[in-house]
């Protein structure tokens, strides 16, 4: 498995660039992963990343996009819980891209 070094800390990613060990995650790693995905992180991005980490802590899975959208709508309101908003933040697929930056595995139920 490839190893990457960020801010003096080294961590393992899989062949698709997902963080292998969830516990390795920190903000610096998130910024690195975002850079790899060509996503410029703003407050709105962080809000979704933190939301995903909370979701994972609660359910032990990364949600499918449809489930993420619905859960975001419930927590942060319909302005944010929709495909358009989430795809603007994470153009290559909110579930896959945001999960990667959040240090989560690839979403379950993602086809």
């Amino acid at each position: 498995m490839p190893m990457v070094e960020v801010a003096g800390k080294s961590f393992e990613v899989d062949e698709e660039g997902y963080l292998t060990n969830l516990a390795d995650w920190d903000e610096n790693i998130a910024k690195y992963l975002a850079q790899e995905e060509k996503v410029e992180m703003g407050d709105d991005h962080w809000e979704i990343i933190n939301f995903l980490r909370e979701y994972y802590n609660e359910y032990q899975i990364a949600p499918a996009i449809r489930v993420l959208t619905k859960a975001v709508a419930k927590k942060l309101g319909p302005d944010k819980g929709n495909n358009k908003y989430l795809y603007e933040l994470f153009p290559y697929g909110p579930a896959k891209q945001a999960c990667k930056i959040a240090g989560l595995p690839k979403p379950t139920g993602c086809i």
């Binding site: 609660e58 359910y59 032990q60 899975i61 949600p63 499918a64 489930v67 619905k70 859960a71 139920g109």
Partner: peptide, 14 residues
């Protein structure tokens, strides 16, 4: 082993 017991609670969201 990873626990998947909390994941049953996610089913409602699916």
């Amino acid at each position: 082993m990873k626990s998947f017991s909390k994941t049953y609670r996610a089913l409602e969201g699916y």
